[in-house]
Write a protein that binds this DNA or RNA. Structure first.
Lengths: 197, 197
DNA sequence: GCTTTTGGCTAACGCAATTAGCCACCGGGT
DNA sequence: ACCCGGTGGCTAATTGCGTTAGCCAAAAGC
């Protein structure tokens, strides 16, 4: 029996693609092994187990997101940058639903979890976007969390088919961007260093 | 062997509590049966299977959310109502993490899925909150989706421990409410009937 | 060319969900 | 009071998944 020549990266890449095709919850060791032309136990020579695999897929997803969003905001700022970043993220969620699902429901194992570092990298571009608004430094974390919540929420609701009404989702997305853009301007302009928070 | 006197509602209630205690992903038929003083196959006399159980827990969660948020916004409007609704939702997510997790990642089986109806009921109170802002009717759906995205996003990130930085989460939450409140006012005031959308 | 490491394999275990099929309990009718 | 049918438990068995143990050949290094 000739060797398949697998390595960790190849397995993770294949797993991510498979998850996108059949859905993250349908991703199974046996199916992944079959896709790779190998038996299930062989996978354990390269990954520690299912949990490890999931985390690696998630890390891959975060990195892809960072790259895509980073590229999208090149040369833009303010509302343009916000819209471009959001759109890049949304496209990614729709294109790679399995990878996106892998990033949900993760509990970091510790402060040095690679997942954590990857998610930090994924946030980076949003920080750049926010720099285009006049956010006081002590509010930056809050603003970052807010923006992250907003886009994560929209993307995950869309991904799970949470929007039932027939109204166009793209329009709702534009509306949401408008809402956040205006909110950021208003909050930056009128409450630069609100002491009661 | 005397009968345990179970019924569907009792099982779902117990499952929801158990999910809150040990985590939704740890909820298993065997564990649930043990909690109820019964063997696992007996559960199938009352529920169709695991998927059915999950959907019923989710429906329960949506209904609880609708009640809690509805109660929270009684007699309030505008920013107050927004904050109260958001806080009620957030409290619920923290109090009943298992139930909340059950509502994620559901794909409605069809247009008459009970889950769908329950989630509609869960949205109701937010519609009431939005009535306190001057949202033009044709934008109501968009605004509703936006608000839902925002709070769902924040809650789910918090529930999954997605906020690593040590900054206080409650403060971030206040900031988010401020952001949305100002955004809604701005968008309602300046673009009452934007034709290009 | 021999040895060592490495990356496949088969076999086997434990656990979860589910189904089949049995049998005792409980309520209603005679 | 009795019987009798449906209901709600049970045990046993099946399937499929993740994972571990232990074997053996292929590649890699001396």
């Amino acid at each position: 029996m000739p060797r398949a020549g697998l390595d960790t990266a190849a397995i993770v890449t294949a797993a991510a693609e498979l998850a996108d095709e059949i859905g993250f919850s349908e991703l199974t060791m046996a199916r992944l092994a079959e896709r790779l032309g190998v038996r299930a136990p062989s996978l354990y020579k390269h990954i520690a187990g299912q949990d490890d695999l999931h985390r690696r897929i998630a890390a891959l997803a975060f990195d892809e997101a960072a790259v895509a969003i980073g590229a999208a905001i090149q040369g833009r700022s303010g509302r343009d940058a916000l819209a471009a970043a959001a759109d890049a993220l949304r496209t990614l969620v729709l294109t790679r639903p399995g990878c996106y699902a892998a990033t949900l429901g993760l509990t970091p194992t510790g402060p040095d979890d690679p997942i954590l570092l990857a998610s930090m990298r994924g946030i980076g571009p949003f920080e750049a976007v926010l720099r285009g608004y006049d956010i006081p430094p002590q509010d930056m974390t809050h603003a970052l969390r807010a923006v992250r919540s907003v886009f994560h929420g929209f993307a995950s609701l869309q991904a799970s088919g949470g929007f039932q009404l027939s109204t166009d989702i793209g329009e709702s997305f534009d509306y949401l961007i408008d809402l956040i853009d205006r909110g950021l301007r208003a909050i930056a302009g009128t409450a630069p260093a609100d002491p009661h928070r």
